[in-house]
Design a protein around this nucleic acid. Structure first.
Lengths: 200, 200
DNA sequence: TTACATACATACATCATGTATGTATCGTGG
DNA sequence: CCACGATACATACATGATGTATGTATGTAA
């Protein structure tokens, strides 16, 4: 069976990212030697360093892959909703669920900022998780759902609170009540965003 | 000059933490070999591995040291204020200023979660930065400044938003306006916390 | 002062990364 | 279709970092 160069490349690349993804998620970036990744992928280190400049580059690919799937899930929830308001509620729930996955916690939220550097990580986030949030808030402003205001910074703050909420819930001994508490606290924020108090 | 064992120990330990602190802050945990730390501290790797189980343990000490100073600064601001309300406003400003320091950004906010693991890092935070925030909110509830509510989860979410605000401001091309925007967004939240809307 | 514990230095074993080099497979112009 | 260049990968190696084992000096207490 004769395979094209492109097929060979893309199949080994995906073998590498899939193997790396599972290992990184389970044990964290630095605890996983490249040797173990390539063995799991059925290739050698030569293949890895042919396709990627270094281990970081492979890690970045894994992060982007995960982020892409992440936002696709959120977008699906938003798309299925009858209107924006209920879509946003559904998206919040989906977000909290997705962030609870070890893959997200370890790879995206814990390792990524330290391994890639905060700026690099921020750039990736900007066009994935953060991007969809900004879009959502922009639509909300356009539809008059929330008061007109710049949403870039707001989106970052909301996102970090959402992430923290997911992490807190994931490591709580009573996830259900913790989740309720978190949703209450976030609700207070959104209430403020929806109906800003008259100027003091 | 004859020095006691205890003196010898504590002086080399502090030499190690001070050297490590500066190097970690400047280049990040993994970019700094232990060799460089001990050279800067004027000792050898033997001393390091005598006092610390591994490089991580030294790093943990550095993190705790920084966190302790951090919360001391915040507490000072709170203590100097005439009342809690103005103290909280001052503390917010101080918090944003302190988080802008590279030492905090690199060591505490970027490296610590990945190097120590999220749970370990969370435990440290709990009795330092987060601890003072919880105390503050508890006092605010006691004094009737904010509505009665569980503050543990709320504090975590607020803290993460505050940290994110500091990081966003630090890497913004126009820090002043970004800071204003962040303070506005946070203000909406606090407004919601102060005056929860009537139940829907 | 003798015997032990603590503080540190030196030397070494292990292991991970990245690079250099060699080989097989693929694509392509003649 | 074949010869040549390029791409995909494997193997071998050089480097550097961590942690441990061992040796030595200094403090401490009987």
């Amino acid at each position: 069976m004769r395979r094209s160069q492109h097929d060979r490349s893309s199949s080994t690349r995906s073998a590498l990212t899939t193997a790396a993804r599972a290992l990184f998620a389970a044990r964290g970036y630095h605890a996983v030697p490249a040797d173990e990744i390539v063995r799991a992928a059925g290739v050698t280190r030569g293949a890895l360093y042919h396709h990627y400049a270094d281990k970081q580059a492979l890690f970045r690919d894994v992060v982007v892959e995960i982020e892409t799937e992440f936002t696709a899930e959120i977008d699906a929830v938003l798309g299925d909703a009858p209107d924006l308001a209920t879509g946003m509620v559904g998206a919040l729930g989906a977000f909290l669920d997705i962030c609870a996955r070890p893959e997200i916690r370890q790879v995206v939220l814990t390792d990524a900022p330290a391994v890639l550097g905060w700026n690099e990580w921020r750039a990736i986030e900007a066009e994935h998780g953060l991007g969809t949030l900004v879009d959502m808030l922009t639509r909300a402003v356009d539809e008059g759902l929330i008061a007109p205001q710049p949403v870039d910074v707001l989106a970052r703050l909301v996102l970090s609170a959402l992430i923290e909420a997911a992490l807190v819930i994931a490591s709580a001994e009573d996830p259900a009540s913790t989740r309720a508490e978190a949703e209450h606290a976030l609700g207070l924020w959104f209430a403020g965003i929806l109906a800003p108090p008259p100027e003091a």
